[in-house]
Amino acid sequence: MNHRERAIAALTRQIPDHVPTFELEYQLADEMFGKPLVPPELHPGRIEKLSQAEKEKKIYEMAEYMAYVYGELDYSIIPVNAIGNCTATDISPETRLLIKDLLDVTNHQVMLTFHGDGTFYIPDGNEMYEFAYRIADEPDEVKAQAQQMANNAIERNKRLAEAGVESLILCSDYCYNSGPFLSPAMFAEFIQPYLYQIIKEARRNGQYAIKHTDGNIMPIIQMMVDCEPHALHSLDPMAGVDIKKVKELYGDRVALCGNVHCAALQTGTDEEVRASAEYCLTWAKPGGGYIFCTSNVPFKGMPPERYRMILDIWKQMRDY
């Protein structure tokens, strides 16, 4: 099986040759491979100064480096970075070129993924007050906004599908460690219908939808599963989400990704890290439908040797 086939098998709850792995984002390229994934020349403020030829060269080099890094990590799904000015309804020409180059460099043997959510997420700071008040004072306007956001996401996801992006990571966070931001009733009103639309249209485009959220999802997991994503991501153990339990309850309806304890990776003992990785593989792997990954991302500050440790455990236990 190549990486793409392996990812598809897992996302469709089949049994691949071995459990695939990937991350929503990989922030340790500097530490583990010597330089960041996105070269400084392609950052906002600098990319505009490049000629077309220089831009194309830099983007191709970036694609080559990404293919190298993710190849070394043995990822089956590559998260594509947005470069240039992506809008609410379309990706930038530069991102489109990066996607093309990545597909060429990897010989179409890896699945590409990109952010595709368009649902409300937990607002920050003062926005939270405003959002809560609007829900109470003008619910119809909030729903109209939710519909517009979903329409935009659907439009952009279609463009992504045309460009060759086969899967979407839907990363609007809904939950704290203690539980959802919105009550289940509010979730049903202001998020679920729009999440369902986005996923339904993604499926129509032939895309695979991976729904991510941090936190304790258990009070709303049924509603999320009812939106029919191919997979749920994060399954945050820091919030008490137990992948064994989720597999028992929903393993016949949705594939699972994650649950390897990110806080332990940063501050826990080696034994705790090992135990978490082994637990996930022990309980989520059987029967297929599992993609091994951390409960968030390998973030800056995580000791690289810890991340290598869980990849080693994955390699030891991944085969079916």
Binding site: F131, A132, Y133, I135, F181, L182, S183, P219
Partner: peptide, 14 residues
Amino acid sequence: NNEIYVPEVLIAAR
């Protein structure tokens, strides 16, 4: 007791 959620707290506090 997780019987209500953050927006309900914010609205009550207002």
